[in-house]
């Protein structure tokens, strides 16, 4: 007896096969922004209930900077009016709540990306933008954001998100100025993203 023949194209089991059982399966899409936002709000609320303050990020980078400065030039760092604020006689500059929190952020985001199979080595940018444009602009943006966070006393997480949630005027004014600055500069770097 002849087997009924399938009309489907003959499978090619070895062509391009990398051994990954999930090869060709599209990665899951991002969660609904409202669901992810609500969950994020829950984490933020829990942080307030436990710690009495919200979530942040830039403070950890400030501490890392001061710790490195302290290694390179201990006397000058101790004498500096601003950097010395991060120094404490009984504990290391990096032994701070915000530093542990940011370590948790890195691990949490990595695990989420791993579960969603989004882990890739890439410089995220518009297909029209070259890495030679993207990477120097990332450095410029990083310097600006770091400087701005110390001026404002926090970043989009510490002042914007956490300050916004406690309805602090500082938080909402920061959000307003953040959007104004972003829209002002967007046209100049459009080719990097769009």
């Amino acid at each position: 007896m002849e087997m009924p023949r399938s009309n489907l194209p003959h499978p090619q089991p070895l062509a391009g096969w990398t051994g990954n059982p999930l090869q060709g399966v599209p990665p899951p899409r991002y969660a609904s922004p409202y669901a992810a936002g609500a969950a994020l709000g829950g984490v933020l609320l829990l942080t307030f209930l436990v710690m009495g303050h919200g979530l942040g990020a830039s403070g950890a980078f400030a501490r890392l900077g001061v710790a490195l400065l302290g290694l390179a030039a201990p006397a000058a760092t101790k004498a500096h009016a601003y950097f010395s604020l991060y120094l404490s006689p009984d504990r290391s500059t990096l032994n701070a709540w915000i530093v542990y929190e940011v370590v948790g952020v890195l691990v949490g985001a990595f695990v989420s990306g791993l579960l969603a199979r989004r882990l890739r080595w890439e410089a995220v940018r518009s297909p029209n933008a070259h890495r030679r444009l993207r990477l120097p602009l990332a450095l410029v943006g990083g310097v600006l954001v770091g400087f701005a966070a110390r001026l404002a006393g926090g970043c989009t997480s510490g002042i914007g998100l956490s300050g916004g949630a406690v309805l602090a005027l500082a938080g909402w004014l920061f959000i307003l100025c953040f959007f104004a600055g972003g829209y002002l500069a967007a046209a100049a770097v459009r080719r990097e993203w769009q």
């Binding site: 600006l144 953040f178 972003g182 002002l184």
Partner: peptide, 16 residues
């Protein structure tokens, strides 16, 4: 807050 917020927005859209 005002200058920091503006620079934060400019840096954010530049660096991503």
């Amino acid at each position: 807050i005002i200058i920091g917020g503006l620079l934060m927005g400019i840096g954010f859209v530049t660096g991503g």
